[in-house]
Structures are given as C-alpha cells and as structure tokens.
C-alpha cells in the first residue's frame, strides 16, 4: 500500500504513533481509521493513495476492519 520507506515514515509521524511494543500496529490502525471517518485526510493524502483511503473507509463502514 505504501511503496516507499519515506512515505511510511511520514504516515507514522503524522499519526503520532508511539512506538510502544505490541500495540503499535493497533494504534496505527485506530488513528488512521479515526482520521478517515472524520474526513480529516488532508495530511494522510500525502502518504496514502485516494484508492487506499476509500478502501479503508468502505471496509470500516462494512465492519470488516
């Protein structure tokens, strides 16, 4: 989904994910979905394609993620 290291780093920094052991990836998901649900996507558009944002939004609405 994110093709480069720089973009992935950018997304993590932008979401302010704290690097705390096992819950780290959960934090990433929760914060990302929250932003997408609130249409607060201006920043994350730099790192994720509009298709990926659309996919996550739909998958969340359908209760899959």
């Amino acid at each position: 989904m994110i093709s480069s290291k720089e973009k992935y780093q950018g997304l993590i920094k932008s979401l302010k994910v704290k690097d705390v052991n096992v819950k780290y990836t959960n934090q990433l998901k929760i914060k990302l979905i929250r932003k997408i649900k609130n249409n607060d996507v201006l920043e994350i558009r730099k790192y994720l394609s509009s298709d990926t944002i659309k996919f996550i939004k739909k998958a969340n609405e359908y209760g899959f993620v």
Binding site: D51, K54, F55, N60, E61, Y62, F64
Partner: peptide, 27 residues
C-alpha cells in the same frame, strides 16, 4: 478497536466493487 455497532449491510455488488478496488491498489 471498537467494532462498528451497525455496519452497513452489503450486497454482492458492494463486495465485488471492494475486491476490484483491492486489486487496483495492490497491482
């Protein structure tokens, strides 16, 4: 992550469209 209380009910068409989107993203 809290589960969505009332997820939107999908049709086969919705899922197909999501699968096509997944394919587009991954390719």
């Amino acid at each position: 992550m809290k589960k969505i209380k009332n997820p939107i009910k999908t049709t086969g068409k919705d899922i197909k469209s999501l699968a096509l989107l997944a394919n587009k993203i991954l390719t």
